[in-house]
Design a protein around this nucleic acid. Structure first.
Length: 258
DNA sequence: ATGGCTGAGCTACTCAGA
């Protein structure tokens, strides 16, 4: 089973690229971030025509997450308890793989720049609430896959020039420690686990020829609970969608589970 | 240190992204 995570930077601006990707790669489940659309503007029909059911948590203009699936899903959850600002940044579901029920949690973590503003405070608060929820689930020994745009560069190797990001909301020590908290709770960075010291990115800025120069960042991740490590077969960053016309600035990460 | 590029909403320009 192939699960993909992709920040598409607007589902409507990206629909042709998304359809190309789905038809050529055929993932079973896709976690989308930054769909930038409400329910009424989401292209349910177009995606259904090529074999995908869509479940979304949308809002106008900004944010928004969705789960696409070849099979129908139930038990969709769209809440992060305690988040009073209620931006559309999380959607989850349950899928049975072999004998295990796995909770798939799709997140779009706030960017947080500029630092030392209310945006940065919201990022910290959002992550703290998220950590609290995940901790509850892990204490109940629930099988978890978290996929999405974390807006966190975990380590030096995950940026083309990490020094430039030392005081950035993506890489500040305080933020990296939040990521480590998740790891220390019993989650595994599937990419780093499988690819060892490989240096690859999931995001390249639109500006200044970042893609051409490979000035990228690895900020889109899959974290899996260690009770399903044996089910994780492979992970791949698929750079093809980033090379196309009218690309998203992010590219998909694909996880194989069986 | 800053700007550069893209999308939404809307129709001029701001906000947001990372």
């Amino acid at each position: 089973m192939k699960i993909s995570s992709w920040n598409v930077n607007s589902i409507r601006a990206r629909i042709d690229n998304v359809k190309d990707y789905l038809e050529s790669t055929s993932p079973d489940v896709v976690l989308l971030q930054e769909i930038k659309a409400e329910e009424k503007n989401f292209p349910y029909e177009e995606l259904n025509k090529i074999g995908y059911h869509s479940y979304i948590s949308g809002q106008k203009s900004y944010n928004g997450v969705a789960i696409l699936s070849k099979k129908k899903l139930d038990k969709i959850n769209r809440l992060l308890p305690g988040d009073n600002i209620k931006q559309a940044r999380i959607i989850s579901t349950e899928i049975k793989i072999k004998s295990k029920v796995i909770e798939f949690i799709n997140i779009y973590v706030p960017n947080g720049n500029p630092v030392d503003t209310d945006k940065y405070e919201y990022k910290i608060k959002w992550i703290d609430l998220f950590i609290k929820e995940i901790n509850k689930k892990l204490n109940k020994d629930i099988n978890i896959v978290i996929g999405g745009d974390f807006n966190i560069i975990p380590d030096d190797i995950d940026a083309y020039d990490s020094k430039r990001y030392l005081n950035d909301a993506l890489f500040r020590l305080e933020i990296r420690k939040k990521y480590r908290t998740l790891i220390n709770m019993g989650l595994v960075d599937a990419y780093r686990h499988i690819k060892k010291n490989k240096q690859e990115y999931t995001f390249w800025d639109y500006m200044a020829g970042s893609w051409q120069k490979n000035y990228g960042l690895r900020i889109d991740h899959f974290l899996v609970s260690n009770n399903i490590l044996e089910n994780i077969k492979n992970i791949n960053i698929n750079k093809k969608p980033r090379s196309k016309n009218k690309p998203s600035d992010h590219t998909p990460v694909e996880l194989e589970i069986s």
